[in-house]
Design a protein around this nucleic acid. Structure first.
Length: 106
DNA sequence: ATTCTCACA
DNA sequence: TGTGAGAA
């Protein structure tokens, strides 16, 4: 069976209206996230925003931070640092694996 | 019917 | 941040 876009979390499938509805946020809020480079959903041929499931999870995260009073500029920075942290953790994990390999040769 | 941009309070 | 007008 080929992978259907249905279960690809990066497939851009949802309109701004659908996302605003399921997350209970203002349309303008989602557009501002786009303006401030916090979340840039891809665009359909007609120029309309299309959010992936992955995008939606991040919007949820951002919404919580915004409710706590953080600026979109600050939130953008936090997402940037979180991506960096995830990358470092990935590298650390690989480093640990290599060290184990040196200590336990077969 | 929906979404887009932009301007305004 | 939210609303609303006017175009697409």
């Amino acid at each position: 069976m080929p992978d259907l876009p249905f279960d690809d979390e990066h497939a851009p499938l949802y309109s701004l209206g659908q996302v605003a509805e399921m997350l209970q946020v203002q349309h303008a809020f989602l557009r501002r996230l786009d303006q401030h480079d916090v979340i840039r959903p891809s665009r359909s041929s007609g120029g309309q925003r299309r959010y992936s499931r992955h995008d939606i999870v991040i919007v949820q995260h951002v919404t919580r931070m915004a409710e706590e009073g953080m600026t979109l500029i600050a939130i953008r920075r936090i997402l940037e640092l979180e991506r960096e942290l995830a990358e470092l953790r990935r590298e650390l994990k690989e480093a640990h694996a290599r060290i184990r390999e040196l200590r336990e040769p077969r």
